[in-house]
């Protein structure tokens, strides 16, 4: 609170020097706070990566020490036991279309909910809210029957549709507010220029919503990448080939296994393998958000 200065006072010349020192102190303080939090969040990440190079004994006997010699075999063991290679392809086949559809459909619905007044608008908002609250595992049995009736069990299109449907509430909820913050005048101007409703959406607002879409893209990517309850129930292959399993199921298998038969090092290696793509996706797209927002940033 000490940094609060009223605009008028700040403008007074005699305080300029003290303001400058204050600025330096303030900036240092900020760096310290940020640095402290950074340590808290980076440390576990580094620890988990480091741990995937250790032996089980090293993990439990000296959890904070560096590995004596990096154990690369953890990774190859994890790769084969959890069949990560096979499942990676399946996961990509599901997630790519499902992410695209999630973003497109959510953007459409959010745009309408944000920009137009019509009867039932609030009702629809609340109906979507239900999907964020009710515990998923209570509805698995009815969902299974829906999928069975539609012959979508153990199919990629089935899982894609389910992923999209379950991602909609959260995404729509966020994007509705996002569209609401976009200036109305642009649309009005375009209408005067003779653009149709669809054109306004696709050519003007959709590009403007990029930061929001990317943010939701990241969150949904993470959510769908790690989702295991849905595939666990809906992607049961009735033969041993397991051809439709996704990554999270392979990881889950390892996790269940190590509970009884400690292979912590293998588990950590598998988790690291599965985590790295999400990290890359975040780092790439984080810069996109950044580019979207520099316009609003202030050099202080």
């Amino acid at each position: 609170m000490a940094t609060i200065t009223s605009p008028r006072k700040a403008a007074q010349p005699q305080t300029e020097r003290s303001l400058a020192t204050r600025n330096v102190i303030g900036k240092t303080l900020i760096l310290i706070i940020l640095g402290a939090w950074a340590v808290i969040v980076i440390f576990p990440m580094l620890w988990s990566i480091m741990t995937s190079f250790k032996t089980d004994q090293e993990i439990f006997f000296s959890p904070w020490a560096l590995p004596k010699t990096p154990v690369w075999s953890n990774f190859s063991r994890a790769w084969t036991t959890a069949r990560l290679g096979e499942y990676l392809l399946n996961t990509l086949l599901v997630i790519a279309p499902s992410l695209f559809l999630t973003l497109l459909l959510s953007a459409m619905a959010s745009y309408v909910l944000a920009r137009f007044e019509f009867r039932g608008r609030m009702l629809i908002t609340y109906i979507f809210l239900i999907g964020m609250i009710f515990p998923l595992f209570l509805a698995l049995v009815p969902l299974y029957f829906v999928m069975r009736t539609l012959h979508l069990l153990d199919t990629f299109p089935g899982l894609i549709l389910v992923y999209v449907a379950f991602s909609l509430p959260f995404t729509i909820f966020f994007l509705t507010n996002f569209f609401r913050t976009l200036p109305k005048e642009l649309g009005e101007a375009a209408t005067i220029d003779g653009a149709g409703q669809y054109g306004i959406f696709f050519r003007i607002y959709l590009p403007l919503a990029k930061p929001g879409l990317i943010t939701m893209g990241i969150f949904n990517f993470l959510g769908q990448w790690n989702q295991y309850i849905l595939p666990n129930t809906l992607m049961i292959t009735n033969d041993d080939q397991h051809t439709h399993y996704v990554l999270s199921q392979g990881l889950y298998y390892l996790q269940a296994k190590q509970f009884y038969q400690s292979d912590w090092s293998g588990l950590f290696a598998a988790v690291t393998i599965v985590m790295v793509p999400t990290l890359i996706v975040y780092i790439i797209f984080n810069d996109r958000i950044q580019r979207g927002m520099t316009a609003g940033a202030v050099k202080g």
Binding site: L105, I127, G131, L140, V146, V164, A165
Partner: peptide, 15 residues
């Protein structure tokens, strides 16, 4: 139509 339809079939109905 499309978002609500998908949502109704796969989420709302089971819920």
């Amino acid at each position: 139509a499309l978002p609500l339809g998908l949502y109704s079939v796969f989420v709302l109905f089971p819920y």
